[in-house]
Write a protein that binds this DNA or RNA. Structure first.
Length: 461
DNA sequence: GCATGATCATGC
DNA sequence: GCATGATCATGC
């Protein structure tokens, strides 16, 4: 077994799980565990492997050594690599108490300073007793990450102090998020200290990108694919935020053309390549062109380069990944891909056409305000409804162009649905055939962010 | 000049 | 072969 007074002993006992399933390691007693619902892989590990009853106490699970046990699912990519399937959910944020706390003595830090992580390969075809446990190790935050996590924690706390707990969103922060937890119904609403309005129950969480970073570290993968924005000097002289550092790197180039920026860095980029603007961004950030931006990956930040017309309107709407008709109707809004995207943080790089030449105007970190996410939700609901009813095509013109009932740009301030495919025969299957055309598949579509919204709410503000 | 539907190009 | 960012075509 293990010595509960020794972190080392607990960790090495935990590591014996690696390469096995719970069914293989826990003996017969686990066969009739009687747990239902999700989240119970962790409970099973606690009860049947470590032999203590699952609890929700304020201290860490292994109280003598201050270590918290967390189990989390992995997914396999098509190329065989593994990634975190989701964010890692930590303790619930007690709005009524945390505003009195300092980080170093906070409920978050008391419980989660030292994690013992068990990653298993999720497989919806399998019983959870048969999930393969792939990675087991402990985790302490490196200093450079901890500075960002502290700042994230402060950001969340400040919003609670400002009476805005009901406006919290995961995109507010970088590595440590405030994710919704529990049912979304009325009963999961909680009181907050400085506002009558009730707020959704939320928990601290590590962003999916950050969990991927932990996984890569545990798996001892080569870190050479990442380039850091925060170098030794930038973190130890004083404590600027990621925002401040990034903006200070871009500001000297405001008003410069893309070609001037390219020359400044002695680059000879292929100006017609798709990666052209992404490469300029990396050059400005001081990151190798063949590397990923480590801090952005860890914070799940989406970089969007926008080309504005002379009237400040983006030349194009912004597309998101295509949705599959059969999948989108199966999930609730809360679990939807679209909500997940809108909750992330974005980094916008705005260039503007001036006599057909692109000039860097400004950069901006942004995440969608809670009230706008609620407004975009209507577009998602209307889309799902359209698919479920099989009422997609509204009319076919003489020229054979199919008009649809999908939410249009004119119907919502924020978002609309449009085709995004190689051609109209590039389709996904429909769960319900289209009433007008009897089609069982339809051209791939995706959600788009309206160009007018990007102008009014992101660029001009 | 914009909204909407359709399609292209690149890179992995 | 596909995802993603970018662009085109038509009609009002």
């Amino acid at each position: 077994m293990f010595d509960p007074n020794s972190a080392k002993s607990i960790i090495s006992y935990a590591k014996e799980l690696k390469g096995y399933t719970l069914r293989e390691k826990c003996g017969e007693s686990i066969e009739n565990h009687g747990y239902k619902g999700k989240g119970n892989f962790g409970q099973l590990v606690e009860k049947f492997y470590f032999g203590y009853e699952p609890n929700s106490k304020a201290e860490a699970d292994f109280v003598e050594v201050g270590m918290e046990l967390k189990s989390s699912p992995l997914k396999a990519l098509k190329n065989g690599e593994i990634r975190s399937k989701e964010r890692l959910v930590l303790n619930i944020i007690n709005y009524l108490e945390v505003h009195k706390e300092e980080f170093d003595h906070s409920s978050f830090w008391k419980k989660n300073a030292h994690l013992l992580l068990i990653f298993y390969l999720h497989d919806k075809e399998k019983d959870l007793l048969d999930y393969l446990i792939k990675l087991v190790d402990d985790w302490k935050y490196p200093n450079r990450d901890l500075l960002i996590i502290k700042r994230d924690w402060e950001t969340i706390n400040q919003k609670i102090k400002d009476g805005k707990a009901h406006e919290l969103s995961e995109g507010d922060t970088f590595y440590l998020g405030a994710c919704t937890k529990g049912s979304t119904a009325e009963k999961s609403l909680r009181h907050q200290p400085f506002n009558e309005v009730k707020a959704k129950q939320r928990a601290y969480s590590l962003k999916q990108g950050y969990v991927n970073h932990i996984i890569a570290n545990i798996a001892q993968e080569e870190q050479a694919v990442y380039g850091k924005i925060l170098t030794q000097e930038t973190i130890f002289e004083h404590l600027p935020s990621i925002e401040e550092i990034v903006i200070s790197k871009f500001a000297p180039f405001y008003g410069k053309t893309s070609i001037e920026i390219e020359k400044h860095f002695n680059l000879e980029l292929n100006r017609t390549a798709k990666s052209y603007f992404a490469n300029l961004t990396k050059a400005i950030l001081g990151i190798g062109l063949n590397k990923k931006i480590e801090e952005f990956e860890k914070a799940d930040i989406q970089v969007k380069t926008i080309r504005l017309k002379e009237n400040n309107l983006p030349k194009e709407d912004i597309s998101f990944p295509n949705f599959k008709y059969e999948e989108i109707v199966e999930l609730d809004w809360e679990e939807s891909e679209f909500k997940h995207i809108l909750e992330q943080k974005f980094f916008f790089v705005f260039y503007q056409f001036e006599n057909n030449i692109l000039t860097l105007k400004k950069v901006k970190f942004w995440n969608m305000p809670y009230s706008d996410i609620e407004e975009a939700k209507k577009v998602w609901h209307r889309t799902v409804e359209t698919i479920e009813k099989g009422k997609i095509v509204s009319e076919i013109t003489d020229k054979g162009i199919r008009k649809t009932y999908f939410p249009k740009k004119t119907e919502n301030r924020i978002s609309h649905v449009r085709p995004h495919a190689r051609d109209k025969d590039d389709c996904y299957d429909l769960p319900v055939k289209d009433q007008l055309t009897n089609a069982t598949e339809y051209t791939k579509h995706c959600f788009w962010l309206n160009a007018s919204y990007v102008k009014d709410e992101i660029y001009m503000k």
